[in-house]
Simulated assay, not measured.
Amino acid sequence: MGVPEDEVKFPAGSDTEIESLSEFDAAAERGELAGYRVQSVDLTGRTSALLGVDTAGAVFLGCAMEPDAAAKVRGDGALVFPPVPDLPFDPYRGALYSPAELFEGLAQGYEGTPDALSYDWFQRTRADGDIFSSMLRSIHDDAISDALDELLVGARVVGVMGGHAMARGTAEYEGAAVLGRTLARAGFTVATGGGPGAMEAANLGAYAAPFDDAMLTSALQLLAGEPSFRPSVSAWARAAFEVRTKWPRGGTSVGIPTWFYGHEPPNAFAGAIAKYFANATREDGLLARSNAGVVFLPGAAGTVQEIFDNATPNYYESRGTPTPMVLVDRAHWTQELPTWPLLQALAKDRPMAARIALVDSVSEAPDALARMSR
Rank of each mutant, 00 (worst) to 15 (best):
E5K: 14
D6C: 11
D6V: 06
D15K: 10
L21S: 09
F24D: 06
A26K: 04
A27R: 10
G31S: 12
E32K: 15
R37Q: 01
V38G: 09
V41H: 12
V41R: 07
T44V: 05
T47S: 14
S48H: 12
S48F: 14
L50S: 15
G52V: 10
G52R: 06
A64W: 07
E66Q: 02
G77N: 07
P82K: 06
V84F: 01
P85G: 11
D86I: 02
P88Q: 07
D90F: 02
D90V: 00
A95M: 02
Y97E: 09
A100V: 05
E101I: 05
L102Y: 03
A107G: 07
Q108D: 13
Q108S: 14
Y110D: 06
T113V: 14
P114I: 10
A116F: 02
A116I: 03
L117E: 06
W121E: 11
W121H: 12
Q123F: 11
R124L: 12
R126L: 00
A127D: 05
A127N: 07
D128C: 05
D128I: 08
G129N: 03
D130M: 00
I131M: 05
S133C: 11
R137W: 00
S138H: 13
H140E: 01
S145M: 13
S145E: 15
D146W: 14
A147L: 10
V153C: 00
G154F: 03
R156G: 06
R156D: 07
V157C: 03
V158F: 00
V158W: 04
G162I: 04
A165C: 09
M166A: 11
E172M: 09
E174H: 12
G175W: 11
G175K: 08
V178H: 13
G180M: 07
T182V: 04
R185P: 01
G187W: 13
T192R: 09
G193N: 08
G194Y: 14
G194H: 08
G195C: 02
E200G: 04
A209G: 03
M215P: 00
M215F: 15
A219N: 05
L222V: 00
L223W: 07
G225A: 12
G225N: 12
P227T: 12
P227L: 06
F229C: 03
A237G: 00
R238A: 13
A239V: 05
K246V: 03
P248I: 15
G251M: 08
S253I: 10
S253L: 11
G255I: 01
G255T: 04
F260M: 11
H263V: 01
N267M: 08
A268C: 10
G271L: 00
A272E: 13
K275G: 06
E283S: 01
D284N: 05
G285R: 09
G285E: 10
L287H: 04
A288K: 11
A292R: 06
G293F: 15
V294Y: 08
V295Q: 03
F296E: 03
G299E: 06
A301Q: 02
Q305R: 12
E306I: 02
E306D: 08
I307R: 11
P313G: 10
N314Q: 12
Y315T: 14
S318G: 09
T321V: 15
V328E: 02
D329W: 10
R330C: 02
R330V: 04
A331S: 01
W333M: 09
W333L: 05
Q335A: 15
L337W: 15
T339N: 09
W340H: 10
A345W: 07
A345L: 10
A353P: 03
V362I: 09
P366E: 07
P366S: 02
L369T: 09
S373Y: 10
S373N: 13
